[in-house]
């Protein structure tokens, strides 16, 4: 199966909310059943299962987390230093326009746009670990004060606050 990505232009959808994510894949990430919706199969980790499920895992169990990851072919920026903004139930993880991820604990969702210039290695090394830690945030127990350090560890750097 190939991934067919095209530039997206809808004057009534300037935020690209409605980019089609035709692929649905079941994963187990951080002990959570994750349903990944994406428009680009290269954004799926190895050993994942392609399925037609939309809100449940392949065994029919309710998904404990939804990942919606959109390959943003209209963004050619390179990755910048990471910025993490924590806002109660929401964490926004950004590496500039080439990587914007939001995790919502109450909605149990991890939502992301990944730019065209992000190759497989950069995705696996820099972004996928952060997605996994954000999944822990979404599905795990209440976030403690030590979460700052944990999130920082996800990208292997130190924090400034």
């Amino acid at each position: 199966m190939t991934t067919d990505l095209a530039s997206y232009c809808d004057p009534l959808d300037l935020l690209h909310r409605f980019v089609s994510t035709a692929f649905t894949i079941s994963l187990e990430i951080a002990k959570a059943n994750v349903v990944l919706q994406t428009n680009d199969l290269s954004l799926t980790p190895a050993n994942s299962t392609l399925s037609s499920a939309s809100a449940s895992d392949t065994n029919g169990h309710p998904a404990s987390c939804l990942w919606k990851i959109v390959r943003d072919v209209d963004v050619s920026n390179t990755l910048t230093e990471a910025s993490i903004v924590m806002l109660g139930n929401v964490i926004v993880y950004s590496m500039g326009p080439a990587c914007i991820v939001a995790a919502d604990r109450e909605y149990r969702e991890v939502l992301a746009f990944i730019g065209a210039s992000v190759d497989a290695r950069a995705y696996q090394d820099s972004i996928f670990p952060a997605l996994c830690r954000l999944t822990e945030f979404v599905t795990g127990p209440c976030l403690s004060h030590s979460a700052h350090a944990e999130l920082s560890a996800a990208v292997g750097d130190e924090c400034n606050a």
Partner: peptide, 25 residues
């Protein structure tokens, strides 16, 4: 740069300035 999914809209300004718009809350 603006993007949005579901109830969230994100904006990045330059490399480090970030905004989140939570339409549900």
């Amino acid at each position: 740069h603006f993007r949005g999914l579901h109830h969230l809209v994100f904006a990045t300004i330059g490399s480090h300035e970030v905004f989140s718009f939570d339409l549900a809350r």
